[in-house]
Amino acid sequence: MISREIVSLLMSNKRLINTIGFEYEKYVGDPINTIRIFSQFQVDELILYDIDNNHINKKDISYIQTLTKFAEMPFTYGGGIRNAEDAEQLIHAGCDKISINSLFFENLNEVNKIINKIGKQSVSVSINYKRVDNKLSVCSNKKNILEMTLGHALSLAAEINVGEVVLNNVDYDGSLHYKSPYEIEEISCHYPFSLVLLGGNDFRSKGKVFKNTNAVSYASGTSHFFHGKHRAVLIQN
């Protein structure tokens, strides 16, 4: 299986934004138009994170269904998924995978229920992490450090048997200078899930930063939107 190059989009109030270190939001485009363009680019996959959504509702699902009508690529949605019913409705609406974050740290029983309904291959766990005192620690969407090491979170994901883990390096969010903690790429093949690295990747430099490209896939957002030293917004692939 070839390593995947995944486009990662952040959505806030139905607007696509870009952040630096989870701050300094900048508007970069309309979700429908952007997804249509990436469909034309025939990207490997696309992940859409709705960063404001605490609990997805019928209107949200209807909107996501509108988006998936334009998503010819494999499509993952994350944001406000609280239970198995939410997950099923999203798959029915055209998502290929659902991505969970808070639920993974709050309610593993519900994550297991989701796996039992839609299959583990369609359950992706998104984990934000940063380096604190020379240790890799997990943090919440709001950048708060949780009392959990990244190693422990990865072991938990392996234990409950999810299909994919997206590791988001908060320190490099919005930058184009990825420096992976070397051990992540080295140990990735030992986990029973597919591993995706996000944060600081520049899609144009694939192969330069990843020594072990078949063991991991990578996702990038910023580099798809900004062009030149003045960071002019231009969708590219």
Partner: peptide, 9 residues
């Protein structure tokens, strides 16, 4: 499968 098979082939 030992590991989820996700991707293009």
């Amino acid at each position: 499968l030992e590991k989820s098979n996700i991707g293009w082939s």
